[in-house]
């Protein structure tokens, strides 16, 4: 495997007696698009928060681009771009003010990203009128598109995108997928994608990690999962569902202290 952007070793997280993440060994190659999959409550968001240094692991080690996040979470601050699961922006500010604040927070000058921004606005049909509206007045899809732009425009080498196309119309979802592809292929960024939308995963995921009840039950290239779990249909969605179902009963949820 090529050089790794993320490497976790026996990473675990307990919330009181509930084991949310159970000794996982993630390996995300640099410059790749890695899809972190799993049913609801599988531990995806907890894992993402640990990678960001927002949650302290109970056990194990996390290395992000060589930085040991588990023992020194301060070091990782400002080095990972983030699109949270739900649209996160200031509802009283306009979309443009939100974008500007995001750039200032990341010490990026507007002039340097203006061409890229214009390109995003064009592709995602974000008009000047929308940009001048308070964020609260935008539709759910428009809000999502603005939040995506805010995370994609940063100069981070590693982006975590949680449900990037959720709530978007077909056209905008398609453009976002093409932008994500460009970010990885053209700009060489590493992308950790968490999504339930099969078209996202089919089009984008080079690598997959499947979490079931906090346990990493599969990790590898996208073709490998198809080969292993759906050789007859060659269908990616089929393969994922089969992994979910086959591992659902295998994985027990241990309780702390028991």
């Amino acid at each position: 495997m090529s050089e790794l952007m993320v490497q976790t070793t026996q990473l675990s997280k307990y919330f009181k007696t509930v084991l949310a993440v159970n000794k996982i060994d993630l390996e995300i190659p640099k410059g790749s698009i890695y899809a972190l999959l799993g049913p609801n409550g599988a531990g995806k968001t907890t894992t993402i928060r640990m990678l960001l240094g927002l949650l302290k692991p109970t056990e194990g080690q996390i290395l992000v681009n060589g930085i040991d996040v588990s023992s020194n979470p301060k070091e990782i601050r400002g080095k990972i771009g983030l699109l949270p699961q739900f649209s996160a922006a200031y509802y009283d500010l306009t979309s443009m003010q939100n974008i500007k604040f995001n750039l200032e927070l990341n010490d990026i000058k507007m002039e340097t990203v203006q061409p890229a921004l214009s390109d995003f606005f064009n592709r995602l049909e974000i008009t000047q009128e929308l940009l001048n509206k308070p964020f609260s007045k935008l539709s759910g899809g428009e809000q999502r598109a603005i939040c995506f732009i805010m995370s994609a425009i940063t100069d981070k080498d590693f982006l975590i995108l949680d449900e990037p196309t959720s709530g978007l119309d077909i056209a905008r979802a398609k453009y976002i997928r093409s932008i994500i592809k460009d970010l990885s292929e053209v700009q060489g960024k590493t992308i950790l994608l968490s999504s339930h939308i099969v078209s996202d995963l089919e089009e984008l995921a080079e690598y997959c990690g499947i979490l079931v009840k906090g346990k990493l039950v599969f990790q590898g290239k996208r073709d490998e999962i198809i080969e292993k779990y759906a050789p007859e249909t060659k269908d990616f969605e089929d393969a994922i569902v089969r992994v979910f179902n086959s591992k659902k009963n295998d994985v027990k949820t241990p309780l702390g202290g028991i």
Binding site: R77, P84, A88, L105
Partner: peptide, 13 residues
């Protein structure tokens, strides 16, 4: 409430 806390914590040194 606006879910911006996570972003602030992730980006602010």
């Amino acid at each position: 409430r606006m879910r911006t806390m996570e972003i602030l914590l992730a980006y602010t040194h």
